[in-house]
Nucleic acid binder design. Sequence first.
DNA 1: CCCCATGTTCGACA
DNA 2: GTGTCGAACATGGG
Length: 271
Amino acid sequence: MPELAEVVYYCNQWLPAVGRTVAAVRLHPRARVFRDADPETIASALPERKLLTADTHGKGMRFLFSGGLHLGVHLGMAGRLFTAPLPYQPDKHDHLVLELEGRAAPGVLVFSDYRMFGRIRLHEGAEAPPWWRDLPPEPQDRGFTRARFEKILDRRSRAPLKAVLLDQACFPGFGNWMADEALWRARLFPGLRAAEARKEERARLYRDLRKVARDALRVIAPEWTAPPANWLFPHRWKDGGSCPRDRAPLERETIGGRTTCYCPVCQPPIA
DNA sequence: CCCCATGTTCGACA
DNA sequence: GTGTCGAACATGGG
């Protein structure tokens, strides 16, 4: 479920706990979300630590606690973060619950993920963890230059554009719907190979994918407002959905290994 | 029972 | 090395 802006939204859910100290940890030690972490260490290291900062990069999150303790969270397909008052009775899909000291709201921080494609990591040390170091610029960043974009397309010349946009090392935060949205706005067939995109088409894609990232952050990150009807988003999963631009029936096809929605009229497939 | 799902990773293969 | 494909992971919904 979560892509760039949804990840920011969920990260914000834990933000009210900045400055608060963890009193106790409740977790399910055999949950798959702990496959890259030692649950015992998480349970013993977090109590008495104060949450200092919370930030996101792409689909990843990093919560920094006092004493140089870094908690990494990836939401996978169905993960979410929320807070709740005490006393809190964990649901069966709540894999990590942090109880906070004091009586102020929120009482607990919860990481829930019924599919368990999500992931929790822990790192202790003065330096940033390996998984939070040397991160590539996000598409909405100033540092995400046209030159960088061109290099990516040149390197992935034989891949369909859809597959390239889903590469987290190149477009951190982009997922299935953002990739489709950007290609639709740029009027490019998702199966078009990067090398086949002409100069103007590349320019459109660069402009529109950055716009999609910024629009998503504006609309979804603060309150998770429903995306407007002039985006592809609200039409893409509906059977019988039609293109908000020309009303043509939308098509769905597996491209780059994922179900891809596009408009056959304004994003004509190459024969 | 079937198929599908806003994600990642790994192995087999061209 | 590049890229594709399918499976796997685990669960729920239609």
